[in-house]
Design a protein around this nucleic acid. Sequence first.
DNA 1: AAATAAAACTTTCATACTGCAAGTCATTTC
DNA 2: GAAATGACTTGCAGTATGAAAGTTTTATTT
Lengths: 179, 179
Amino acid sequence: MKVLFDTLAGVTRKARSASGSRFRSGCPVNVSLERFGDRWSLLLIRDMMVRGYRTFKEFQESGEGIATNILADRLVRLQKSGIVTAEQDEADGRRVHYRLTEKGIDLAPVMLELLIWAARWEETAVPCAVMTQMETNRGWAIEEVRRRWRERDPEPFLPPFKEKNAVRKRKAQSVGKRG
Amino acid sequence: MKVLFDTLAGVTRKARSASGSRFRSGCPVNVSLERFGDRWSLLLIRDMMVRGYRTFKEFQESGEGIATNILADRLVRLQKSGIVTAEQDEADGRRVHYRLTEKGIDLAPVMLELLIWAARWEETAVPCAVMTQMETNRGWAIEEVRRRWRERDPEPFLPPFKEKNAVRKRKAQSVGKRG
DNA sequence: AAATAAAACTTTCATACTGCAAGTCATTTC
DNA sequence: GAAATGACTTGCAGTATGAAAGTTTTATTT
């Protein structure tokens, strides 16, 4: 089995309007990019997926400094894409809880591979120990993330990586439980 | 082992200038996004990774319709990030061959998970058979892509998915080169 | 050798998107 | 009832994008 192929050439711009599709092309990579191919969407997904963030405020203060208008816009888009849901807090009517849908939590493998790639090739703030853990145990990591989501366990899976070269930083506390 | 944690709060904007880093934060997801978190970069990587495209022209006609100025800009950025290299064709001095570096080909797992996710949750042009193949055999898919890269085998691994629901579409003609 | 063509960019310019600051509005707390 | 909080909107300046046309360098054709 050499190539899963069927020679095609594509004037996709034309196909786009012809097919009535809102997408530039039906390539899955392209569709994904049209969903969250910008500088912010995946960060929000990360916040929800591994940090346990839920509210507008938390996203806003999440570290990279997203503007509130952009944040609001992205949250709407992600909802329209079915990746995120929003529901009002019962206790405090001001609060809105944003949460990943199953479609959203299913991005965990993508997120993990992204994490592994960047940790390997870029100067990131991820400690080596964490990476070894992740890389040798992908299945476990994903299942942990899934479990937290399923059980609505708000406990973060990973901390906000604050600075570069965290490896050299000395941590007062170990890699155990509870921050 | 519940959380790989160490409570940090982050005013990353500050950390950004303080550390002199060009990144908004050292989080690997963020770093990845700063590398190719736009609507085009990953498509180029896809073209090189699974379609065997090499030249400016090929990218340009790749389907989604990138503008030439944007294309040129992204190629430069990807080179600066060490994800892509450029070299002149020996036979034809006009041609420039763009190729993934090892850092670039290492994005194969990310690409694969993206493919799987989109095929599962979005209406894409990927035939079911292909997806089954990929999903049940991730390792094989990645190794195939790697092999082609290593051996400079120009044969595409996947075709350009032209339209949605390609499974049902019937193709009138196969297309060689030369529009 | 001159003319034509091809490939890879650049430039121009109108439009769209982003980012910052400030403001609105519905709760909630004091 | 006043101040505070959380979740957005609005206004506007600056940046990025897209379409089309132009430039440069290197083949190819005549």
